[in-house]
Nucleic acid binder design. Structure first.
Length: 477
DNA sequence: AGCACA
């Protein structure tokens, strides 16, 4: 069959502008290829780290004669071609041009395309982005936008070198947690190059900046709200109303869980999202309603009230500057009731270290207008087994409430969450049967409905019924 | 040391 009639010698190839190099060190860079080949002519393209061992490469000369000169030089040279001390074998490639598999994002340039994973546009201010990327050189312009890929930013530097330095340092890293809103979990940066060379920024706004042009008109409507806090006549900060409430919980003698908060705040309308976190040793929570009116009603009704009788777990409510929380749909510290509730299992990446330990403290003070809450990532780690039976909360530091008025109403079926439970919320069921919490008051379950006087547990004299701390489920009593 | 992810 194969008459092995070698109509061409295996090692003899027709000349090509493209040279095939092998036996390269696997660390070889394009720069080293250029260094090696440049003496023979103009290199128009390279491709290194080719092959399973990443030890082959291609170099394309502008002119065929240049390639020929290199091959013939080393064919008769006593000194072999070398890269990092390794002898490099050179021959004509059997192709005549290098096909760049380089995706556009790999072509270096002075503008970076940054995807900030795991956050929404409102979570990372343009000032934080500016802060982070200024560590590598003067940032000329920033434009942010939301695409299907998520929240993205174009960062324009003076040159490709600076951009490359920033990319190398930051790609895959995370923005330091203290620069982020308290509810943000992990937040990884994916950085590629943009094809842009010069961004066209029309306004200074909360979405785009041109740091080279202070005269640029300011889009106030866009910049307000995001950055400026209103100051009242007495000099006190007036917090603009928001659909998201920030709750500080004083005298937290008993556990205040997501479920407890959901029960309490659902009395005034649909609770969309909840995030619990610690700030300065105090427990705080963000509660998101669909609208400001509902939030205002809840704030009015609940401010200064206690979740449990006896002055325990007293709520202090303010408006958050957030409008849409970005929270893990199901964890022990956060809940998103707008998505189907399935216990999260696969979050193996709970924390990323700070990016620049050395510069971090200096950066902290520069964040504009931020409630910079410290946030212990370990508290945020996803809890996959969420079984509310007595004794299954090893870190539960709280004692049972003194006045278990909720005990009578709990039913086993609704008082346990297991991993196998599929907990699906939709608009109509939201807030009615919250697993882990037994309800015995007629809360107004769904959004939009005005609070019925007396329907809020906190407006009654008794502690909040239905807010049974996990681990103290009454069906065992 | 031998031709490029499909």
């Amino acid at each position: 069959m194969s008459t092995s009639t070698q109509h061409q010698f295996r090692y003899t190839q027709t000349p090509s502008k493209v040279l095939h190099l092998r036996n390269l060190p696997w660390e070889c860079t394009d720069d080293e290829l250029v260094e090696l080949c440049r003496p023979f002519g103009k290199i128009v393209n390279t491709k290194c780290n080719v092959g399973a061992n990443r030890n082959q490469a291609f170099v394309e000369f502008a002119d065929l004669n240049q390639a020929i000169s290199m091959v013939s030089y080393y064919a008769s040279s006593s000194e072999p071609a070398q890269v990092r001390g390794k002898t490099v074998y050179i021959q004509y490639s059997n192709r005549h041009e290098i096909v760049n598999n380089k995706s556009p994002g790999d072509v270096p340039g002075n503008v970076l395309l940054v995807t900030i994973e795991g956050v929404e546009a409102g979570d990372v201010s343009i000032d934080v982005i500016h802060l982070v990327f200024s560590a590598f050189g003067f940032v000329h312009k920033i434009a942010t936008f939301e695409k299907t890929a998520g929240f993205q930013a174009l960062i324009q530097y003076t040159d490709a070198e600076t951009a490359a330095a920033a990319r190398n340092a930051l790609d895959g890293r995370s923005i330091p947690r203290y620069l982020l809103p308290e509810h943000v979990g992990s937040c990884h940066l994916r950085i590629s190059y943009s094809a842009h060379r010069d961004l066209n920024i029309k306004f200074q706004s909360n979405r785009s900046r041109d740091y080279t042009n202070p005269m640029l008109p300011v889009n106030h409507t866009a910049i307000d709200g995001a950055l400026q806090s209103v100051v009242g006549p007495d000099g006190k900060k007036i917090e603009p109303e928001s659909n998201v409430l920030l709750a500080s919980i004083e005298n937290m003698q008993y556990a205040v869980t997501v479920d407890v908060l959901h029960t309490v705040f659902s009395a005034f309308g649909t609770v969309q999202k909840i995030a619990i976190f610690e700030k300065n040793g105090q427990t705080q929570a963000l509660i998101q309603y669909p609208d400001i009116t509902t939030a205002a009603t809840a704030k009015e009704a609940l401010e200064g009230h206690c979740i449990y009788d006896g002055g325990y777990c007293k709520l202090h409510l303010t408006y958050s500057r957030h409008t849409d929380l970005n929270v893990k749909a199901f964890s022990d510290k956060s809940r998103d009731y707008t998505v189907p509730q399935v216990p999260a299992v696969s979050w193996q990446n709970p924390q990323a270290g700070p990016m620049y330990p050395g510069t971090a403290p200096a950066l902290q003070g520069q964040v504009p207008g931020g409630q910079m809450l410290s946030w212990d990532p370990s508290q945020q780690a996803a809890t996959q087994s969420y079984v509310s039976a007595p004794g299954t909360y090893p870190s539960q530091p709280y004692a049972a409430p003194p006045n278990p008025v909720y005990a009578a109403a709990a039913a086993p079926a609704s008082s346990t969450i297991t991993q196998s439970n599929s907990i699906v919320h939709n608009a109509s069921s939201m807030g009615i049967t919250q697993p882990g919490v037994s309800l015995n008051v007629n809360l107004q379950p769904t959004g939009g409905s005005p609070p019925v006087p007396g329907s809020s547990p906190l407006m009654q004299a008794s502690p909040i019924a239905g807010a049974s701390p996990p681990g103290h489920q009454p069906y065992f009593t």
